[in-house]
Structures are given as structure tokens and as C-alpha cells.
Design a protein around this nucleic acid. Structure first.
Lengths: 122, 122
DNA sequence: CTGCATCCACCCAGATACTG
DNA sequence: CAGTATCTGGGTGGATGCAG
């Protein structure tokens, strides 16, 4: 984008990162892995509504970004464990805070939306 | 989705909320409005790379969710100010934390990616 | 059990042009 | 200045079938 200001460049970079770690499923997965080691199927149950494809893709991205550790156990049937890395754990607190905020303010937002929708069309 | 467990229901609801307030442009806009009142064009400059269409849509959503207040001044030429509401301010801290995290760990993530990509294909 | 490959439908975001 | 309208391409996500 050819930006000279390094501050702007950092923010753009930060946005790209947030776009990845902050997307719908990533947050849910990080939240589910909060202090736990889970298998693929367990995660799929935990993260309600995620498809297998999206869970796989999300885990790959998180693994690639160094936030999640993937451990394959060479047994039959296959067993794969997922857990947060140290880097992932540094995100955990913020993600949990975000989740808590969303839960706590769900009513406020619902109310605001209702009022907005009830407003006379301008 | 017909979930009986209210805990799961709350988390799903929270995910939907996070999906809105946590998307790329919303975070950037909230971050830009941190303690400031900005006009449409000022925001467009501040949030580098956003298109006019996306800025409009993002602001509408944030306004509808009660996070941003939109003030139209009946003057010529038109002047519209945007600022965070009280509810929006409760999100500000977390969003800034998230931004800071992204900035601080950009290098770690870049490094993790490079290592991941350098790994022999399995 | 834990994936990957493929196909496909849909939404979103960007570009562009126009309006009050 | 602050939008709206429309078109369009690409990415995203679901469904399904197959494999190690």
C-alpha cells in the first residue's frame, strides 16, 4: 500500500493479524482450548456449529501462526491433540475478556438494535 | 440450532456478537474513535485502506449495535460526527489490548509462519 | 478417528458512477 | 461532504465422498 508512516504500517499489519486470530471460529477455538488439551472430535463438539472443514482450516491457521500446538499420536485409531502454545496463551486472556464482554453486553446490544430498528426511517 | 444447554446458547450468541464487533473494520474504527470524535472523511483517512462503502456499512452496524453515536449537523456542506457511546467505551479497552497484542506479537507470528512453511511437507 | 479433495452456492468487498 | 446504487470477482463455508 506504499505507506511511509511506520505507525500506519504497524496498524495495517496488526489489522491483518487480528483478522486472522479474531475471526469467528478462531476465537471460539482459542476459547475452547482455554487451559485444555482437546482432540479433534472433542473440539468439534465444543465449538458448536463448526463444520469439519472449517475446524480443520482454523486449526491449520492457528498452528501455522504458532498459537496452537498439534500433536499426532501414532496409534490406531489416530489420535491428534490440540493445545495452546505459550504464544497462544498470551492471547487467551484477551479472548476470554472479549467473550465475557459479549456475554455481559448481549442484552445491551439486542436492546440497541431493537431501538434502532424501531426508529422511523429517515 | 435448537440447543437446550443455556450455556452453549450464550456462547453461540456471544460468537455472533464477536463476529460483528470483532471484524476487521469494526475493530479498526473503534480503535480510531478511541477518545476522539471524528467526521466521516477523517475516519476514512484514519482507517487506512477502508473503502467508502465499507466505512459506511461498518458505521451503520456499530451505530445499530449501540456502540457508536452518529450526529448529523444540519449545515451546508453536511457534517456528520462519529464517537463512541458509553457501551462502545466499555469495548474500547479490550479492543486496544487486542491491537497492542497484535502489534507486539507480529514478529512472533511472522516467525512461526516462516518456520511452519519451511517444514518438510508431510 | 482424523482428516483431505472436490464441487458449488452465497455473501462480501472493491470499483465505479451518481445524488442531496 | 457524506453518502447511495449497481455490478462483479473472489473468497468463504457447507455438503459430500474418499483415504490413511
Amino acid at each position: 500500500m506504499q505507506v511511509s508512516d511506520p505507525e500506519v504500517a504497524r496498524l495495517c499489519e496488526a489489522r491483518q493479524i487480528l483478522n486472522r486470530v479474531g475471526d469467528k471460529w478462531s476465537i471460539a477455538v482459542i476459547y475452547a482450548l482455554d487451559g485444555a488439551t482437546l482432540r479433534f472430535t472433542e473440539l468439534r463438539r465444543e465449538v458448536h456449529g463448526i463444520s469439519q472443514r472449517m475446524l480443520t482450516a482454523t486449526l491449520r491457521t492457528l498452528e501455522r501462526d504458532g498459537l496452537v500446538r498439534r500433536t499426532v499420536h501414532p496409534v490406531v485409531p489416530p489420535r491428534v491433540d490440540y493445545e495452546l502454545t505459550d504464544l497462544g496463551n498470551t492471547l487467551r486472556g484477551t479472548v476470554c475478556t472479549l467473550m465475557t464482554w459479549a456475554v455481559n453486553h448481549a442484552d445491551d446490544i439486542a436492546k440497541a438494535r431493537a431501538e434502532y430498528d424501531a426508529r422511523p426511517a429517515s
